[in-house]
Amino acid sequence: MKFRQKAVIMDAESIRRALTRIAHEISEANKGVDGVALVGIRRRGGPLAYRLASRIESIEGVKPPVGVLDITLYRDDLTTLGPAPIVHRTEVDFDVADKTIVLVDDVIFTGRTVRAALDALMDLGRPRRIQLAVLIDRGHRELPIKPDFVGKNVPTSRQEIVSVLVEEIDKEDKVVIEEIIE
């Protein structure tokens, strides 16, 4: 498949501002970050969760625990794919029981990834509450799932692809809309 870039919708600076705002919103919504932990959804939710934790530390003086969730084994579309996708480790080194867990992902689209993440998280323990933070909400939900914290709402068509690039993985910070040309 070939892709054509249609537009850059966020650059490094706007991503930085959006994450700073979300960090403030997380601490405001939870009246501080006592009992709050961040869990990023692999892959790009992971680096975003770590960045949010650093922002929160600079606001609150306390760095919330951070974990990374691999949701592959919880996906609902495995039988519609080609070969079984690679499974990575879930790295949540703290007890999720009775915590407020902020799930972090780069893009929310159908909501199916978040559904899988909720199930994966529940199997690790019983959080007191789960909230959802995303950098981009591109619409087209197929499940009754709504993010609590959003960096940017981006109206898209179903055929378009929203790609979030992060420094830690992609060597640059940027959000682009692409379309499939063949």
Binding site: L78, T79, T80, L81, G82, P83, A84, P85
Partner: peptide
């Protein structure tokens, strides 16, 4: 998983 986890 590798045998059954994907499509056919």
């Amino acid at each position: 998983y590798l045998m059954l986890g994907g499509g056919k």
